[in-house]
């Protein structure tokens, strides 16, 4: 479950960003995860609520934007878009593809609560 480690990184980034912006609550966490990244978005969701408990992002909504997978096809000498590492070049059907993008795993942005707003539901 390396997803747990990754979501712990999300928590560290979220807490530091909230602190730097004087926010006590994070309403939405937006991630950008490439389609060729080494993580399953559903597994991140599974860990998110557990890992965020007790943090400024407890109860926050998690939004995951999937960014496209990009590769260079050596046979076509052209950039192509692929959805998985096992996919062939959509133009020539070959597999001489070098991954050039879509492996990112980033915290894209946060929606912070108003000053003084806390995540405690009381």
């Amino acid at each position: 479950m390396h997803e747990m480690s990754l979501v712990e990184s999300v928590r560290e980034i979220v807490e530091a960003t909230a602190r730097a912006n004087g926010a006590d609550r994070v309403r939405v966490v937006r991630l950008r995860i490439g389609r060729l990244a080494t993580v399953e978005p559903e597994a991140l969701r599974f860990c998110f609520d557990v890992v965020m408990k007790g943090s400024v992002a407890e109860g926050a909504r998690l939004e995951i934007e999937a960014t496209p997978g990009a590769a260079w096809c050596w046979d076509c000498s052209a950039p192509v878009t692929i959805g998985a590492l096992t996919e062939a070049c959509p133009a020539c059907g070959g597999h001489r593809l070098e991954v050039t993008g879509g492996t990112e795993m980033r915290v894209h942005e946060l929606e912070l609560g108003a000053p003084g707003e806390t995540n405690a539901c009381a």
């Binding site: 980034i13 912006n21 926010a23 309403r27 990112e104 795993m105 980033r106 915290v107 894209h108 946060l110």
Partner: peptide
């Protein structure tokens, strides 16, 4: 909401 850009790698 206040939206802040983060762009930090996990």
């Amino acid at each position: 909401p206040r939206v802040v850009s983060v762009e930090q790698d996990l």
